[in-house]
Computed example of a mutant assay.
Amino acid sequence: MSQPDMQPGGPARGDRGEAPRRDLAGRPFPLGDWGEPAERLDELYRWVEAGALRTAQWYLVDRLWKRRAARALRIGTALGVIAGAVLPLLEVTGVRDGTSRWGYLSLLLGAACLACDRYFGLTSGWIRNVATAQAVQRKLLGLQFDWASECVREVLGPAEGTASEATERCLGVLRRFTEDVAELVRAETADWMVEFGSGPAPLVMQSTGAAPGRGVEGHPSGRVPLPPGARPNMPRQRPPEAPR
C-alpha cells in the first residue's frame, strides 16, 4: 500500500453508491477515504475489537443455560445413584419392605440423567464455551498490547520504514488477530461436530481448507495429513545394481 489515498481492493464502495460489505453478524465493514489512514485504521481496530468482544460474549452467554442444565442432570445422577444404593439396604436391614424396586428405578433415572448429559453434550459444551471465550480474550489482550506498541512507535517516530509500511504493519496485526479468532471458532465448531458423530474424515479437509488433489498451505509436506494409524503409500524403488 504505497499510496495513502488508495484503499485495498479499489476506491471506497460508499463513493460509488454500493451497499457496504458486512460480516456474518451483519456489521458493515468500515470503509472510507484512505486519505486519512490514521482514522481508517482506528475505525478498523474498533471494528475488529468489537467483533472479538461479541464472539466472547456469545460463548459466555451460551454457556449459562448449558451449565445450569448440566448441573441439574449431574445432581439427578448423583441422587439416583445414592437412592439406588440406600433403598435396597433399607429392605435388607428390615427397616422398610418393598424399597428394592424403588432403588432400581432410582438407578435407572440416574443413568437416564447421565445419558442425557452425554447425548446433548451439556457439560462438555459449557466447558468448551468457557475455554473458547477465554482464548478469545487472551488473543484480544495480545492485540491491545500490539496495537499500543504500534501507536507508541508512531508517536515517537518510526525508527525504520515509511508511513505506508507502518500502515501495512497495523493492517497485518489486525488481520492476524482476525484469522486467529476465526481459527478458534472453527476449532470449537469442529470439536462440536466430532462430538455429535460427524466423523473425523470430513473435518480433515475442512480444517486444512484444501480441496481434493491440492496441497495444504502451511503443512511441511504440502499434503493433507493422514489419519492416525494410516500408512502412506511409498513409491517403488529399483533395487541397487550389483557392483561390476
Rank of each mutant, 00 (worst) to 15 (best):
Met1Gly: 04
Ser2Asn: 12
Gly9Leu: 05
Gly10Tyr: 05
Asp15Val: 08
Glu18Ile: 06
Ala19Cys: 01
Arg22Met: 02
Leu24Glu: 14
Pro28Asp: 03
Pro30Ser: 03
Pro30Ile: 00
Leu31His: 10
Asp33Thr: 09
Trp34Leu: 10
Trp34Ser: 12
Trp34Pro: 05
Gly35Tyr: 04
Pro37Phe: 03
Glu39His: 12
Asp42Trp: 04
Tyr45Gly: 03
Trp47Lys: 08
Gly51Ser: 15
Leu53Thr: 00
Arg54Val: 01
Thr55Ile: 09
Leu60Pro: 00
Trp65Cys: 01
Lys66Ala: 13
Lys66Phe: 11
Ala69Phe: 01
Ala70Asn: 06
Ala70Arg: 04
Ala70Gly: 13
Leu73Thr: 03
Leu73Asp: 04
Arg74Tyr: 06
Arg74Cys: 04
Gly76Ser: 01
Thr77Lys: 04
Ala78Lys: 07
Ala78Tyr: 12
Gly80Ser: 02
Ile82Cys: 05
Ala85His: 09
Leu87Phe: 14
Leu90Gln: 11
Val92His: 12
Thr93Asn: 10
Asp97Phe: 09
Ser100Tyr: 09
Trp102Ala: 12
Trp102Gly: 07
Tyr104Phe: 12
Leu107Lys: 03
Leu108Cys: 13
Leu114Thr: 02
Ala115Asp: 00
Ala115Val: 01
Asp117Ala: 00
Tyr119Val: 07
Tyr119Asp: 05
Phe120Tyr: 08
Leu122Tyr: 10
Thr123Leu: 01
Gly125Lys: 00
Trp126Val: 04
Asn129Gln: 13
Ala131Arg: 12
Thr132Glu: 02
Ala135Arg: 14
Val136Leu: 07
Gln137Ile: 07
Gln137Met: 12
Lys139Ser: 15
Gly142Ala: 13
Trp147Gln: 03
Trp147His: 05
Trp147Arg: 14
Ser149Asp: 15
Glu150Trp: 07
Val152Phe: 03
Arg153Tyr: 02
Glu154Arg: 14
Val155His: 08
Pro158Ala: 03
Gly161Ser: 02
Ala163Tyr: 08
Ser164Glu: 15
Ala166Met: 07
Glu168Phe: 02
Glu168Leu: 08
Glu168Gln: 11
Cys170Asn: 03
Cys170Ile: 04
Cys170Met: 12
Leu171Phe: 02
Leu171Val: 09
Leu171Ser: 13
Gly172Asp: 15
Gly172Lys: 11
Gly172Phe: 06
Val173His: 09
Leu174Tyr: 07
Arg175His: 14
Arg175Lys: 14
Thr178His: 13
Asp180Ala: 15
Ala182Leu: 14
Ala182Ile: 09
Ala182Met: 14
Glu183Gly: 11
Glu183Thr: 12
Val194Gly: 01
Glu195Arg: 09
Ser198His: 09
Ala201Thr: 12
Pro202Asn: 10
Leu203Lys: 05
Met205Trp: 14
Met205Arg: 15
Gly209Leu: 05
Gly209Ala: 04
Gly213Glu: 02
Gly218Val: 11
Gly218His: 08
Gly218Thr: 10
His219Phe: 12
Pro220Trp: 12
Ser221Pro: 04
Arg223Val: 08
Pro228Met: 10
Ala230Gly: 00
Pro232Gly: 09
Pro235Ala: 03
Pro235Val: 00
Gln237Asn: 00
Arg238Met: 07
Pro239Ala: 15
Pro239Gly: 12
Pro239Thr: 10
Pro240Trp: 01
Glu241His: 10
Ala242Lys: 13
Arg244Asn: 10
